[in-house]
Amino acid sequence: MESRETEQDVILRALTPVVDGIAATIGPVCEVVLHDYRRPEKSVVAVAGSVTGRTVGGAMSEIGMRVLARGDDADDELNYVTRTGAGRLVKSSTMVLRDSTGAVFGALCVNVDVTEVDRVQGLLAALAGAAGGRAEAPVTTFGDDIDSVVDALLDDRLRRQGQTWAGLDRSRRLTLFRGLDERGVFAVRRAIEQVAARLGISRASAYSYLSQARATDETGADGTDTTEGAADNPEGAHP
Score class of each variant (00 low, 15 high):
Leu12Ile: 02
Leu199Tyr: 03
Ala24Thr: 12
Asp36Ser: 14
Glu116Phe: 05
Arg170Asn: 10
Thr6Arg: 11
Arg98Ser: 00
Thr224Asn: 11
Arg178Trp: 12
Ile22Lys: 04
Met95Asn: 09
Thr82Asp: 02
Thr140Glu: 06
Arg159Tyr: 14
Gly162Trp: 05
Ala206Phe: 04
Glu193Ile: 07
Thr82Tyr: 05
Gly179Arg: 01
Glu235Ala: 13
Gln212Asn: 10
Glu62Gly: 14
Asp217Arg: 12
Leu12Phe: 03
Ile63Asn: 08
Val117Leu: 14
Thr101Val: 11
Lys91Leu: 02
Gly223Val: 12
Tyr209Pro: 00
Ser100Lys: 06
Asp75Tyr: 10
Thr141Val: 15
Gly49Trp: 07
Tyr80His: 03
Ala48Met: 15
Phe186Gln: 03
Met65Ile: 15
Asp118Lys: 08
Ser100Ala: 02
Val56Asn: 12
Arg157Cys: 14
Ile26Met: 10
Gln194Arg: 12
Pro40Leu: 08
Cys30Lys: 09
Gly167Glu: 11
Asp151Ile: 07
Arg13Ala: 06
Leu124His: 03
Lys91Met: 08
Glu62Tyr: 15
Arg173Ile: 09
Gly143His: 02
Val56Gln: 11
Ala69Phe: 10
Leu176Ala: 00
Asp118Gln: 09
Val188Tyr: 01
Ser43Ala: 07
Val47Arg: 00
Gly167Gln: 14
Ala137Gly: 12
Met95Gln: 13
Arg190Gly: 02
Ala187Glu: 07
Arg38Tyr: 05
Val51Glu: 02
Glu7Pro: 02
Arg173Glu: 05
Ser61Asp: 14
Asp155Tyr: 12
Val51Lys: 00
Ser43Gly: 05
Val33Gly: 03
Asp181Tyr: 08
Lys91Trp: 00
Ala74Tyr: 04
Ala14Asn: 04
Ala107Arg: 03
Asp225Ile: 05
Glu116Lys: 14
Asn233Gln: 15
Val150Pro: 04
Ala191Tyr: 02
Glu182Gln: 15
Phe142Met: 09
Ser208Trp: 04
Ala197Trp: 12
Thr84Met: 08
Ala126Asn: 06
Arg214Val: 01
Thr164His: 07
Asp155Phe: 08
Ala231Phe: 09
Arg172Phe: 07
Val10Lys: 12
Ala204Ile: 01
Gly49Tyr: 00
Leu199Pro: 00
Met60Val: 15
Thr216Ser: 05
Leu89Ile: 11
Asp9Ser: 13
Val81Asp: 05
Pro138Asp: 00
Val188Glu: 06
Ala230Ile: 09
Ser208Ala: 12
Ile192Gln: 06
Thr55Pro: 10
Gly85Asn: 13
Asp222Met: 10
